[in-house]
Design a protein around this nucleic acid. Structure first.
Length: 654
RNA sequence: GCCCGGGUAGCUCAGUCGGUAGAGCAACGCACUCGUAAUGCGUAGGUCGCGGGUUCGAUUCCCGCCUCGGGCUCCA
């Protein structure tokens, strides 16, 4: 047999028989590699392990324990799920079923029926049968006509094929099929065939560490006006251990759910009498929020911002000027008729800030002018989109509008990035990612020149920070490019929080001007920026990040003092008073319940320090310290404890 | 807004194949005064989300609405 030579990822050449497949290559490298191999990357393209290698190919074996490998597992598992559903629900039409982050889904048209949670069990059981049956995934390529024959009773598949053939396909279609003359299909038994580019695992027996998670609905092609499909979500992993770990992470995330913790910790609530998406803050939540806001105000005050306040309502003419009524009227609360006009609750603070800028003639000497407000806005979010604090109808932005000259833009953005990151760090975030959104060529205002200048300024600021960032082409709002800042939380989820947006539109609409050194009138550039974004949402993210165990500087109760018995109550009160004189939030819980019970309650309430004081403490001026997450320490002198707490809260001293 | 699933005591939930409801925790009272994650006994607490219909009778069945949850869509 002739030999061919292939190149491995490390650059090494390897001689193999000329009829070797990717699977064979893996086998020749090591038996273990063959066992975990799910696909191959051949000359930069993902393919099946069954592909024949050719002389000179560069090949990397994709193993199940990599993201690319899991993607293949999940996609193959989605096929198995579709096979199971088609078997269990005769007449079901299948549509698309991609791998997604941590799992997969598949959308079906059940002809008006809907899946229930109970259906998941039977589908999953059927899937296990298919896995057991060890069905081989076999790819073949057919013409579009053959494909239409093959899927004659599957209208959604035909639609995909026809769209690809007509050249009107979007990325997802091409991802399913290939091209007009070469339609790629996979069979994994004579009972199931699907349009698919692959690659897939060699056989269904390679799957098995999966779990179906939830049923829901989705629109065909994401179109609200289109058919409503039934979707099943599942997750799949390379091993039982990896699957269990993922499920454990999900359980952990559920425990951190801010809606649940808000009730358990008595932080805030959403009384139905108020209406959806409107919260009331209870004392424990309010103190945390107040501290967040105090800290924010402190940083803005020392950061060169000027504070302003603006009302919650405005005459409609303001929002006509700003353009909000033209573009976002659907998202605004409905108007209120008044004797001298029509008023709206404000959906944004910027128009009012523009009025302040325009209130008198401005000199270049005043720029950059940074106006800051914790401004409460109201947006009519659609009922189905509300989600605790994370999607809410009344919320407060830590909103600033910065008016500057074109020349100042670069420096302003660089220092803004510093500012944002520094404030986010104070709240315990230290893993950031950045997104630069650029012009949507279909929809924008302002000159190409100013767009490219501003986009460059944003990019330069990111570069000067030495941070990596992703560019999202065409993702900017119509009025200017922006940087979005995401943080990674304690369990690895990312949240989009801060934003820095250039705006070429509002200065124009409000005819904003300043007097330049040469006496001419110039138009300023405007920056919108928010760090928390919404105070409410940021609070929700903090609750989840800390699992309700706020750092000491933010904790509603910092120190709880438990007298062992009634006789120690007076001493406990003295300790509390001492803590209070040092500015700490301390309280005593009397010995009505047993000590163990009170300790337990303190732990459940996630209080940073629970002190126990008894006979020896009264005698020696000490306390017994239960620091959250640490071992008990007895006989700590009170002064030492005060120092300890002082050091603990110094992370955000102001 | 759309699809699906929920709404029973402050919280978590059970229950009623149609005869107006129960547990644990929490609250309150009494006893216990205790050194590190639930002391015991007792009391109180519910228009069974709201409105309409069917029925001798509805928390239970039907319809509408409100609201919450999971998704979809949307998010200046």
């Amino acid at each position: 047999m002739a030999q061919i030579s292939v190149v491995l990822p490390d650059g090494a050449r390897r001689e193999v028989e000329s009829d070797t497949t990717a699977a064979g290559l893996a086998q020749s490298i090591s038996r273990n590699l063959a066992k975990v191999a799910v696909a191959a990357e051949i000359n930069g393209h993902l393919g099946d392990l069954s592909e024949q290698l050719r002389d000179g190919d560069t090949i990397a074996i994709i193993t199940a324990d990599t993201e690319a490998g899991r993607h293949v597992l999940r996609h193959s598992t989605a096929h198995v799920m579709a096979q199971a559903v088609l078997a269990l629900y005769p007449g079901a039409k299948y549509t698309i079923g991609p791998a997604i982050e941590n799992g997969f889904y598949y959308d079906f048209d059940l002809g008006g029926r809907a899946f229930t949670e109970a259906d998941l069990e039977s589908v999953e059981a059927k899937m296990r049968d298919i896995v057991k049956a060890d069905q081989t995934f076999v790819r073949s390529v057919v013409s579009a006509d053959e494909a239409l024959d093959l899927f004659a009773d599957q209208p959604y598949k035909c639609e995909i094929i026809n769209r690809v053939r007509a050249g009107g396909a979007d990325g997802s279609d091409a991802g399913e099929v290939g091209s007009a003359d070469e339609v790629s299909v996979y069979r994994n038994s004579d009972q199931f065939v699907d349009l698919c580019l692959g690659p897939h695992v060699p056989s269904t027996s390679r799957l098995g560490h999966f779990k179906l998670q939830k049923v829901s609905s989705a629109y065909w092609r994401g179109n609200e006006k289109g058919p409503v499909l039934q979707r099943i979500y599942g997750t799949a992993w390379e091993s039982k251990a990896a699957l269990d770990e993922h499920l454990h992470r999900l359980a952990e995330a559920e425990k951190r759910d801010h809606r649940r913790l808000a009730v358990e910790l008595d932080l805030l609530s959403f009384p139905t009498e108020l209406g959806g998406g409107l919260a009331v803050w209870h004392p424990k939540g309010a103190i945390v929020r107040k501290l967040m806001e105090d800290y924010s105000r402190h940083r803005h005050q020392t950061g060169g911002y000027q504070f302003v306040f603006t009302p919650h309502l405005s005459n409609a003419t303001l929002f006509q000027t700003s353009g909000h009524l033209d573009f976002y009227a659907d998202g605004m609360y409905p108007p209120m008729e008044m004797d001298n006009g029509v008023y709206y609750p404000k959906p944004m603070n910027c128009p009012m800030h523009c009025l302040i800028f325009r209130g008198r003639q401005r000199s270049y000497r005043e720029l950059p002018l940074r106006l800051f407000e914790l401004g409460t806005v109201y947006r009519y979010e659609r009922a189905g989109t509300l989600h605790g604090l994370l999607r809410i109808r009344g919320f407060t932005q830590d909103d600033s509008h910065i008016y500057c000259t074109r020349e100042q833009l670069q420096g302003e953005i660089i220092s803004l990035l510093d500012f944002v990151i520094s404030v986010l760090r104070a709240f315990g975030f230290d893993d950031f990612s950045f997104h630069l959104s650029t012009k949507d060529p279909e929809k924008y205002v302002g000159s190409d020149e100013i767009w490219s200048e501003a986009t460059q300024a944003l990019a330069t600021a990111l570069d000067s920070h030495g941070v990596e960032y992703a560019t999202k082409e065409g993702d900017a709002a119509f009025y200017g490019p922006k940087i979005d800042i995401h943080v990674r939380d304690a369990i690895g989820r990312t949240w989009q929080l801060s934003t820095i947006q250039c705006d070429f539109n509002l200065p124009e609409r409000f005819q904003l001007e300043y007097v330049a050194p040469d006496g001419s009138r110039q138009r300023p550039i405007m920056l919108h920026r928010a760090l928390f974004g919404s105070v409410e949402r940021f609070f929700g993210v903090l609750v989840e990040h800390y699992a309700g165990a706020f750092p000491t500087w933010l904790a509603p109760v910092q120190v709880r003092i438990l007298p062992v018995a009634e006789a120690h109550h007076q001493y406990a009160e003295r300790v509390a008073a001492t803590m209070a004189t040092h500015g700490f939030r301390a309280e005593v819980v009397a010995a009505d319940d047993q000590l163990g019970k009170r300790i337990r309650n303190g732990k459940i309430e996630k209080i940073p320090y629970v002190l126990v004081v008894g006979d020896s403490d009264v005698a020696n001026g000490t306390v017994g310290v239960n620091a959250r997450g640490a071992d008990v320490e007895r006989d700590v002198p009170l002064a030492t404890f005060v120092d300890l707490v002082a050091a603990d809260v110094s992370v955000a001293a102001f």
